[in-house]
Amino acid sequence: MLEDLRFGIVYLSLLSGICGLVFLHKLPGNKAKSILLLIWLSTATELVGKYFTIWTGLLNYYVFNLYILMSFSIYILLLKSLIKTRTHKNLASLLLVIFLVFYFINYFFIQNEFGQILTNSYTVGVLSIIILSFLYMFELFSSNLVLSYSKSVFFWFVLGILIFHVPFLPFMLSLKWFLIDYNPSIYGLIIFFLNLLMNFCFLVGFIWSEKKYNY
């Protein structure tokens, strides 16, 4: 059934992760390797999330809420390391603090009901990386690297996360606010398709990029 497609994202993530290991020689520093860390973190989250309820008898929301905290923190730190302008770096630091503070306030005082995804924290995290991603893109296309942007693994990674999160956020909020009806088949198809596009960007980045542009 179409809702089962969402579990296919594990294989997409595995493919990207394995490809990243194959081309590990193109990822010279911790900044580039953090991309691989994020991909494998996503893979592990999907695998553990799938079997968490079977293993523990608890809902797997705990797994995905922890993933929201870890992944968006790393996203913001990575984007901060990619942007060059001091003002933009300071904004990245501020957004990280806002995200972390809001995450715990939201967890303990707002969305503190048992068994639900922290959609408020996810929203703040997505908005933060959208802002920083567009700042990174603006700096990239305003620099002397504009002619070789496609040879950077960072460009393809940032493009991938934008392709996934920009359309998925309004879809998820529409479900939360009951603007559209939840349909497991449609949900599975959308999340699989967005993951397919995102992981395609990751694969292109690992294969097409050149080491000298990945510092």
Rank of each mutant, 00 (worst) to 15 (best):
L2G: 01
L5I: 13
F7A: 11
G8R: 08
Y11Q: 12
L12Q: 00
S13Q: 06
L14I: 12
G17M: 01
V22Q: 08
V22S: 08
F23R: 07
L27Q: 00
L27A: 04
G29R: 04
K31Q: 06
K33N: 02
L37K: 02
L37R: 03
L38W: 05
I39G: 00
W40V: 02
L47I: 12
V48F: 11
V48H: 03
G49S: 11
K50Q: 15
K50G: 07
Y51W: 13
Y51L: 11
L58N: 11
L58Y: 14
Y61R: 08
N65P: 10
I68D: 00
M70E: 10
S71H: 05
I74H: 02
Y75N: 00
I76M: 02
L77Q: 11
L78W: 06
K80A: 10
K84E: 13
T85P: 02
T85E: 06
K89H: 09
N90Y: 13
L91K: 02
L95I: 05
L96S: 02
L100T: 07
F102V: 11
F108L: 14
E113F: 10
G115T: 09
Q116H: 13
L118F: 13
T119H: 03
N120C: 09
Y122K: 09
F134H: 07
F134P: 00
M137V: 12
M137Q: 09
E139I: 12
L140I: 11
L140Q: 09
F141W: 14
F141E: 09
S143M: 14
L145S: 04
L147C: 13
S152W: 04
F154Q: 03
F155E: 01
F155L: 12
F157M: 04
V158W: 01
G160Q: 04
F164P: 00
F164R: 00
P167N: 06
P170Q: 03
M172S: 01
L175G: 04
K176V: 03
L179M: 15
I180C: 07
D181M: 09
N183C: 14
P184L: 15
P184S: 13
S185L: 12
S185P: 03
G188D: 10
I191Y: 05
I191L: 11
F193P: 01
N195Q: 15
N195G: 10
L196S: 14
C201D: 07
I207Y: 12
W208V: 05
K211E: 15
K212E: 10
N214Q: 11
N214C: 13
